Computed example of a mutant assay.
Amino acid sequence: MPSIKKVGDGIYELDLKGYVCPYPQMYTAQALKKLSKGVKLKVVIDNPPSIENIKNLAQKEGVKIASIEAKGGTWEILLEL
């Protein structure tokens, strides 16, 4: 599994560039289980179908999607646990 990096106070990043479905959703689910309530997880992807899959996962897990930003071929999905 790709590693979760702390990038700020209560903010973590999971870089999933280069992974295709179902891996971004799978790795995001694993990361959510490792993090505490109240933190934020920024998931970075470059596979467009993964956006919907991660949105569905967040809804299923009761995690808020704070933002989804396109960054020139990649997307950053900020999840609030």
Rank of each mutant, 00 (worst) to 15 (best):
I51P: 12
Y27H: 12
T74P: 00
I65R: 04
N56A: 14
N53M: 14
G62P: 13
Y23S: 11
K17V: 08
V39Y: 13
V20T: 07
A66I: 05
S50P: 03
Y19S: 07
Q30I: 04
Q59W: 09
I51A: 10
D9G: 08
A66H: 06
L14H: 07
A29H: 07
A58C: 09
I45T: 06
N56W: 14
I68D: 06
N53A: 15
K60H: 13
I4C: 05
S50T: 00
K64D: 14
I51Y: 07
S50A: 05
K34W: 02
K64V: 09
S3V: 08
C21E: 13
K42N: 05
G72C: 10
S50N: 03
G18M: 05
K60Y: 12
K5Y: 04
Y19D: 00
I54P: 15
L41D: 01
A31D: 05
A58S: 09
W75S: 10
L14V: 02
I11A: 11
Y23P: 06
I68Y: 02
D15N: 15
Y27T: 06
V44T: 09
K5W: 05
K17A: 02
Y23K: 14
V43M: 09
G18C: 04
V20P: 05
V63E: 13
L16N: 12
E61H: 12
I77R: 01
G38L: 08
T74E: 15
K42V: 07
L35E: 01
A58Y: 04
L16F: 11
E52I: 12
L78Y: 00
A70L: 06
D46T: 02
I54V: 15
Y23Q: 14
P22D: 09
P48T: 04
D46P: 03
K60C: 04
D15K: 09
A66T: 06
L14S: 06
K40Q: 01
D46N: 12
S67F: 05
K37C: 01
L35Q: 02
K34M: 08
A58R: 02
E76R: 10
V44R: 10
M1N: 06
L14Y: 08
P22Y: 05
K34R: 12
E13S: 09
P22R: 10
G73A: 12
L35R: 02
M26W: 14
G38D: 06
K71A: 04
Y12D: 12
K5N: 11
G8L: 01
G38V: 01
E52N: 13
Q30M: 02
A58M: 02
N56E: 15
P49T: 05
Q30S: 02
K37Y: 11
K34E: 13
V43I: 09
G62E: 13
